[in-house]
């Protein structure tokens, strides 16, 4: 079975099957580029992902492995055709997968999924972050995202007034 070495930003290498790796749009392209530039068709491709650390890369690969038999979602899903992320509902496995994660890790996963072009993972992680915003109070959101209120002077009051103006309508 053809394998590929995927190396994280902190130098950890993961050996995965090419079939699995190719479910990431980015890795697929990289493998193909490697094939074209390499004389030896048996050579094992080695791909450095300089923006993703080992812990996150492992999670992405883990997710890919779990979902290796799902249909691949095209990156630009035509919403009019009605096969958006709604149809690819979150599985119980996904929920268990994401449950223990800190929001910071989830955001790193979003970046990674985006970089590696893994649409399904990007969808569920974005949805998770969105759920930390929808229906929450301002304080809850600030706590979840570890943000301080950085409004100056009467800016916050001003913003509140602007909101009142818009929401009242």
């Amino acid at each position: 079975m053809a394998l590929v070495r995927v190396i994280s930003s902190d130098g950890a290498a993961f050996l995965v099957s090419q079939r699995l790796a190719k479910r990431s749009g980015k890795l697929k392209t990289e493998i193909e580029t490697f094939r074209k530039s390499s004389d030896n068709s048996e050579a094992q491709p080695e791909i450095r992902i300089v923006t993703i650390r080992a812990e996150i890369l492992r999670l992405v690969l883990q997710w890919l492995q779990q979902h290796q038999n799902d249909p691949v979602l095209p990156a630009n899903q035509n919403e009019q055709d009605g096969r958006g992320d709604a149809e690819m509902g979150q599985s119980q496995w996904d929920r268990d997968f994401l449950a223990p994660m800190d929001l910071g890790i989830v955001m790193e996963l979003i970046l990674a999924a985006n970089h590696l072009e893994v649409k399904g993972l990007l969808d569920i992680t974005c949805k998770l972050v969105e759920s930390k915003i929808t229906g929450r109070t301002v304080d809850e959101i600030r706590t979840a995202f570890k943000l301080k209120s950085d409004f100056k002077g009467n800016e916050e009051e001003q913003t509140r007034l602007e909101n009142r103006w818009c929401v009242e309508n």
């Binding site: 109070t137 301002v138 959101i141 600030r142 943000l147 209120s149 409004f151 100056k152």
Partner: peptide, 11 residues
């Protein structure tokens, strides 16, 4: 509602 809430979170 949520959208305007977000405006209050941070500049």
């Amino acid at each position: 509602k949520d959208f305007f809430n977000i405006r209050l979170v941070h500049p």
